[in-house]
Design a protein around this nucleic acid. Structure first.
Lengths: 202, 202
DNA sequence: CCAATAAGATAGTAATCAATTACTATCTTA
DNA sequence: TAAGATAGTAATTGATTACTATCTTATTGG
């Protein structure tokens, strides 16, 4: 099954489309990605895209859905193979950062989507993703407290929000610098400060 | 000098334009703000805008410049009227959050600008803003260490990055929720966790 | 091997948008 | 108060974009 074949079955073509958009988002402003640009990247004519998606928004929705599934699957796996709640948090963090470094277009797509003021289906997917992620985090933090690994005085929800916010902030700052490697460098240092904020005082 | 006067002098007209764009950015995706929409908000015809700005990018540049000046001025003032480094950090944080809550279009404009892949003049202004902001923070943190208020073991640069990241992350999450009041609610709770991460152990 | 159908190519359309142009109204000052 | 400078209007232009109608080619099951 060589990937350069024309006439792909519909579901494969849709998967390749998602891939192409994630790639393009790493290279340019996602809100300026045209259907023509997507088609060109896939060596397809622009009109052919509309054989597989009813409209452009449906393409975006598919991309966001793929991102959400990937991220939850990867971080879940990382957390479940960790010995303690705190190490699970760290494993989720590292996995999350790795995923973004591997696909720099991903945060750009998410940011672009949440810029929209209307409630789009894609935005709803992101909301569900984040609230699920936050739930997992605060459960882990509570577990850490009861196991005596984390300080009982901390606000679990706030700590979960800060965990997610830390990642988002690091991503924004590397986006601003135009250097994804900065993310890899800054992330562990920021996490060290965060860890100190939730751990029991020694 | 009623603001609804026609025939404003050029510099006033430019200032009003910046105001209009910041307002519009609170209501819609900044990348979809058209020159026609800006003109309509100002009760002006679209073409008239180009009497005062050579092109659309120049409008954006003016808006970003205004934001940067405002933010630095306000946080500087807040920090200088604080008793200790840690309280200065908290004052800057609160001031920053207040500024965003008052003008919800601001983070949207900044996010929109840094989504662009090219190096625009506006993006350069944001980079300068953030690096100046980070510098101020790490100096404050160093001062806090030497005064025995903050833990000497923490990484000042990472703590500064996390400070900024925390704000950016909180903003993104309130943007996602479509509720700016969430920012006001979550901010102090997240800051409490952050404070615990840098303060000396009691 | 041959229809039936799925997938792609080609060539459009209507709408939108930044920018420009020719002209007019208003302000300022010598 | 006349004349130049400044600010605004209305209409248009060329480029771009999402989407579609029609024709062509490849794939596949009987």
């Amino acid at each position: 099954m060589q990937p350069s074949t024309k006439h792909l079955p519909a579901d494969e073509r849709r998967a390749v489309t998602v891939e192409a958009v994630v790639e393009l988002a790493a290279e340019q402003n996602p809100s300026e990605i045209t259907t023509a640009a997507i088609a060109k990247r896939m060596h397809l004519t622009q009109g052919a895209l509309f054989r597989h998606f009813p409209n452009k928004d449906a393409i975006w929705q598919a991309v966001i859905k793929w991102i959400a599934e990937q991220l939850l699957a990867r971080t879940d796996k990382a957390a479940s193979s960790s010995a303690s709640p705190l190490s699970a948090l760290e494993a989720m963090f590292i996995t999350h950062i790795d995923f973004i470094v591997k696909h720099p277009g991903i945060p750009r797509m998410l940011l672009s989507e949440l810029q929209r003021h209307e409630e789009t289906p894609a935005k709803t997917i992101v909301q569900t993703l984040i609230s699920g992620y936050r739930k997992r985090l605060s459960i882990l933090i509570d577990k850490g407290k009861s196991q005596g690994e984390l300080d009982k005085g901390i606000d679990s929800e706030a700590a979960a929000t800060l965990f997610i916010g830390m990642i988002q902030g690091l991503v924004i700052q590397s986006l601003l610098a135009g250097d994804i490697e900065q993310l890899r460098k800054d992330a562990p240092r920021a996490f060290a400060v965060y860890r100190r904020g939730i751990r029991i005082c020694k």
